[in-house]
Amino acid sequence: MNPKDLPVVGTVFRLGAQDRVLDSFLLLGPIVILSFVVLGRNAFTISVTGAYLLSFIGYVLYKGIR
């Protein structure tokens, strides 16, 4: 099954950044937020949120300097 056939994923891929990585950040954003809303502040949610932010910044820098 192709991911773009899934309802939300398909919409994001069609109307989003036309860049699979940035589209993934768009899709992961609500999940990251939901994780710290539901699970609270702990080592896991801090790590996940930190990784989300750092990987986004890292990807933009990588695209800029490659």
Partner: peptide, 17 residues
Amino acid sequence: WWIFILFTFFSISLLWL
């Protein structure tokens, strides 16, 4: 809109962190 939504997720996550 997609830029704004993406940056919104980024901002919320940064402030929580």
